[in-house]
């Protein structure tokens, strides 16, 4: 479905070279819900931008349904962390969700079906006419998710979508993602730095190392399919998996850290 093969990304500026991602390879199966977890600043965003065709890799390639990704592919939707900056503030909620559909040249009746359905699915059936900035952060992110779902993507990428919302909202949104995934069966890659969130959401967790990034482990999450915040999170298996991911991430305190905080462009 989605093949990431030998991706490497090196940033070069005049006075230094930074290897953000080193040789990443993994495959997502159709209909899978996988989480990609790694420490802050480990190149997750870089990887996601490469996968979504927003950034060219230094070497390696990404294949979506067998076709090489060069520029954003039509069958992919991305939900960004910065919900406040990814919705068009001059458009209403409805217009935001509808815009990509217009761009796909869907007929008006189909568009309004999709808009209705997706907004209802994220619990915002009443908010059509509002502007994004009139909504709370969590609601704005729901709009962004509705827009992605309405687009009927084959692959849905989410870049730390809940990193900037409060804890309660976050739990609700996590459950929303599971629900939507059950309902629409979209292949989903969910990027996060939160270990609990990764284990709770995913069927599978890919663990990234610190930069330069490699895949440290690929873990199947054998928790029951019906999950809820209370019982799942307090189950012993959850704790085991969580501990396992934690160990992997913290296995080696990386020495490269020093280099990565070196000030840019001084001197």
């Amino acid at each position: 479905m989605l093949d990431v093969r030998g991706i490497k990304k090196v940033y070069e500026s005049r006075d230094r070279t930074v290897e953000a991602v080193r040789d990443l390879t993994f495959t997502l199966q159709a209909g899978e819900l996988a989480c990609l977890v790694g420490p802050s600043g480990c190149g997750k965003t870089t990887l996601l931008k490469i996968m979504s065709g927003l950034l060219d890799p230094t070497s390696g390639e990404v294949l979506l349904e067998g076709k090489r990704v060069q520029g954003p592919p039509p069958g992919m939707a991305v939900v960004f962390q910065e919900y406040g900056r990814s919705l068009f503030p001059w458009m209403t909620v409805r217009e935001n969700v509808e815009l990509p559909l217009k761009q796909k040249k869907l007929p008006a009746t189909r568009r309004s079906e999709l808009v209705e359905e997706s907004l209802a699915a994220v619990g915002l059936a009443e908010a059509h006419g509002a502007y994004p900035w009139q909504l709370s952060g969590g609601m704005q992110q729901r709009v962004a998710i509705a827009r992605a779902v309405a687009y009927e993507p084959h692959v849905l990428l989410m870049d730390e979508p809940f990193a900037a919302v409060d804890a309660q909202t976050r739990a609700d949104l996590e459950d929303l993602i599971r629900d939507l995934w059950h309902k629409f069966q979209v292949t989903t890659l969910f990027v996060t730095h939160d270990i609990d969130e990764a284990v709770y959401l995913g069927q599978r967790v890919l663990i990234l190392s610190n930069s330069p990034t490699v895949i440290r482990d690929d873990l199947a999450i054998d928790l029951p399919d019906q999950r809820d915040q209370l019982t799942t999170r307090s189950s012993p298996r959850f704790a085991e998996l969580r501990a396992r991911v934690y160990e992997q991430i913290h296995r080696v305190k990386p020495a490269v850290d020093k280099e990565s905080v070196a000030p840019a462009g001084v001197g």
Binding site: V18, G41, C42, L55, E82, G84, R85, V261
Partner: peptide, 16 residues
């Protein structure tokens, strides 16, 4: 101003 938020993946990648 919304224009000055640094991207999440940030500390290593010099923003391109």
């Amino acid at each position: 101003s919304p224009a000055v938020v640094s991207p999440a993946g940030g500390s290593t990648a010099p923003v391109s």
